[in-house]
């Protein structure tokens, strides 16, 4: 066997091609980071300057709330019910089923309600915003707005982002209450605990930090859903494929960011406890 063979294991052109691919991916990644950053800065620049689009913001709030209301009601109730049902055997082993309401409320108000609401809204509202703005871009409706003397960014993006930022905390609070109601059903059926006692036990372990953290989380999640959906739709490429990509990108990116934000905020709030 010839041991002096100097032929590289990976041929040079393949290597170059691979590096070119990596370089392009990195360039694209940093370019998109820059673009998202510019998009967010533009939002803060334009959203709080007159003229204000109050009417459109209210309409978008209504759309966001109504679009997710049924699904959130159902999911919230089931989450509360199932969570209580699954936690019962573990607590029963220690004879601590009376702690169930406290456990349910801590889990729901601190983590589940904002998270579940945000994930549902990312799927329902985020994809809808991405698809709507994407199709408006593709069919030149955004250009039509621009040439008719309207600022489409302010009218389409700022209103939607503000709407999701305002609506998601309300929906998350609602999800929390509905989930607690679901938990009550399980506790009532098994132990016959009265509603008044249950509610007392539910709110007892919750502190001001819990409510504040949940509220901040919901606001951050709402902003993320709105800005990601709008970014994907507003900058979608031509064609129907672009609309699909915008809708899909809006959901996937928003969900990914929501999980990262959840971890970050949980870590930060734990320092204050």
């Amino acid at each position: 066997m010839d041991t002096t063979d100097t032929t590289p294991i990976i041929p040079e052109p393949v290597k170059q091609k691979r590096f070119a691919g990596i370089r392009k991916s990195l360039t694209d990644f940093f370019a998109s980071l820059y673009n998202i950053n510019s998009f967010i800065i533009r939002f803060f620049k334009e959203a709080f300057l007159p003229p204000y689009e109050f009417k459109e913001i209210i309409r978008q709030c209504y759309e966001t709330g109504v679009r997710s209301f049924t699904l959130i009601s159902l999911t919230g109730f089931i989450v509360g019910l199932i969570f209580t049902k699954q936690s019962r055997p573990s607590l029963a082993e220690f004879g601590a089923t009376s702690w169930l309401p406290s456990l349910v409320s801590i889990a729901i108000m601190r983590a589940l309600a904002p998270l579940v609401t945000a994930l549902i809204a990312a799927g329902k509202v985020g994809s809808s915003i991405g698809a709507e703005l994407g199709s408006m871009r593709v069919t030149e409706q955004i250009d039509a707005m621009e040439v008719s003397g309207t600022n489409p960014f302010k009218f389409l993006v700022c209103t939607r982002v503000l709407a999701t930022t305002l609506t998601i905390p309300i929906l998350a609070t609602y999800t929390g209450l509905i989930s607690i109601l679901g938990g009550f059903l399980n506790v009532y059926v098994n132990e016959g605990t009265s509603y008044r006692t249950y509610i007392g036990q539910v709110f007892d372990p919750l502190s001001f930090i819990d409510f504040t953290a949940a509220l901040i989380k919901s606001i951050v999640f709402g902003f993320t859903i709105g800005i990601v959906g709008c970014y994907q739709g507003y900058n979608s490429s031509s064609g129907t494929e672009g609309v699909g990509k915008a809708a899909n990108g809006a959901v996937v990116t928003a969900m990914f960011l929501i999980f990262i934000e959840e971890i970050t905020i949980v870590q930060i709030t734990s320092w204050f406890r």
């Binding site: 199709s135 408006m136 069919t139 030149e140 409706q141 250009d143 039509a144 040439v147």
Partner: peptide, 13 residues
């Protein structure tokens, strides 16, 4: 002061 008529009309759906 400029009117722009788009190829696909671009009416708001």
């Amino acid at each position: 002061r400029i009117g722009f008529s788009f190829q696909n009309s671009a009416l708001y759906d």
